[in-house]
Design a protein around this nucleic acid. Structure first.
Lengths: 218, 218
DNA sequence: TTCGAGGTCCTACCCTGGTCGGAGGCCGGC
DNA sequence: GCCGGCCTCCGACCAGGGTAGGACCTCGAA
């Protein structure tokens, strides 16, 4: 988290002239912001960035030639590129997930208060992220089920060998495949599998696969 | 997303008297907020909720007897319970992930501006979520790598019925279970399953479960 | 109307997966 | 040294999963 520089240089990317000038006005009215450039389509961004010093890119999603997600992805392929705030009118799941996966550091809906855009720009300029409150809930549900917090507790009972077998099973391998992978006999695999089931109180293979995936063992 | 009622009734849970009165002051100074109760530990929450009408619970993480994460989990086991905003001084990953997994709808650091707490309370009261900007980035990275990005392409070939069957299969249900769930015969399930396999070029059930999980069909 | 796609159900067959109840060898801790 | 946990392997048995190939019905588009 680096400190915010005195002046944040913003690049606006939106195909609607009116939106650009509106955003420009919002930002300029505040101290510490400068709109150093504007693009009317995603394919102009690369050129603008090579020409200008930019701290934050504010980008519309829907544009004529190259959409905001594609432009963001292209831009973020350069690790030195400035962070991107994605701006959109509609917040469907596709766009949210697409934008975030493309590497957007901020996601702001166009009907949120100007103050939020200001905060979003400041946040991403300092390496933080910003989500519109309206979409935070959806990201959270994904986070809750994501495997990041290895709650290892669940598999603690398993021996290392059993964990190995479970991992392969979770990838969809059959018993013979697991056997050849581990250079043991299929019968041995079966006995491991059986012990895994009883230790984890599982009914069958599908249940084991589901559990493994739910707890990020993949 | 329901509208916010005129008056938001807040329950404060924090073991430090000073913090509670500070929060209470912040909330009371604003129109539309009322602190209807205070608890000094997690184990008092259940009783307070049964006694009081509460719209939002604001809960400290570190408490003496029952910590905030446990209290949140207990509380959230009742689907009718009010949303919880977790308040903490330190933002380590364990707490963040623990709180969110426990079902917290908001996560606020104690060193953020009072305005943010206000917004957080409003957000969660209307079914939205709120993340402190300082932790949003971490949740986002988890989201990016999470399998939720419904790249629906993969399952486009499937009919709606087949998708239904696949979804249940992905949860670990057996054919008879799927059958009774969908009020059809097991034989029908089998024929759906067979068609799913051939359409998606899958070998067997485990492969289907893995694919479904990889593409967030759970 | 005809045709095709989707949904349902059927028979019969085979194979994998899973269970039960063992057994022997290896190794580390008491 | 002995015990216990772990890994390995065995045989036999059976339920469920999966395949093949078809039949019937409904509904909407051509």
């Amino acid at each position: 988290m680096t400190d915010a520089p005195d002046l944040l240089r913003v690049l606006l990317v939106d195909d609607q002239e009116l939106v650009r000038s509106g955003l420009s006005r919002i930002l300029r009215r505040r101290d510490g912001f400068e709109v150093v450039g504007e693009c009317s389509d995603g394919d102009e961004v690369a050129a603008a960035l090579s020409r200008l010093a930019v701290d934050v890119v504010v980008m519309d999603l829907r544009m004529k030639r190259v959409d905001g997600i594609t432009a963001t992805r292209d831009l973020r392929s350069d690790p030195a590129a400035p962070p991107v705030i994605v701006l959109t009118t509609f917040d469907d799941d596709e766009m949210l997930s697409g934008a975030l996966r493309a590497g957007a550091a901020g996601f702001v809906l166009k009907d949120t208060p100007a103050e939020d855009l200001i905060r979003a720009v400041r946040a991403v300029a300092t390496g933080q992220a910003w989500l519109d409150p309206a979409v935070t809930a959806r990201v959270l549900t994904a986070y809750r089920t994501s495997p990041t917090a290895r709650s290892t507790m669940v598999f603690d009972d398993l021996t290392s060998r059993e964990l190995e077998v479970l991992t392969l099973m979770a990838r969809g391998l059959s018993n013979p495949e697991i056997a050849s992978q581990l250079f043991i006999s299929e019968l041995t695999v079966k006995s491991h599998v059986g012990r895994i089931f009883s230790k984890l109180d599982l009914r069958d293979r599908p249940a084991a696969i589901v559990l493994a995936h739910e707890h990020g063992l993949v």
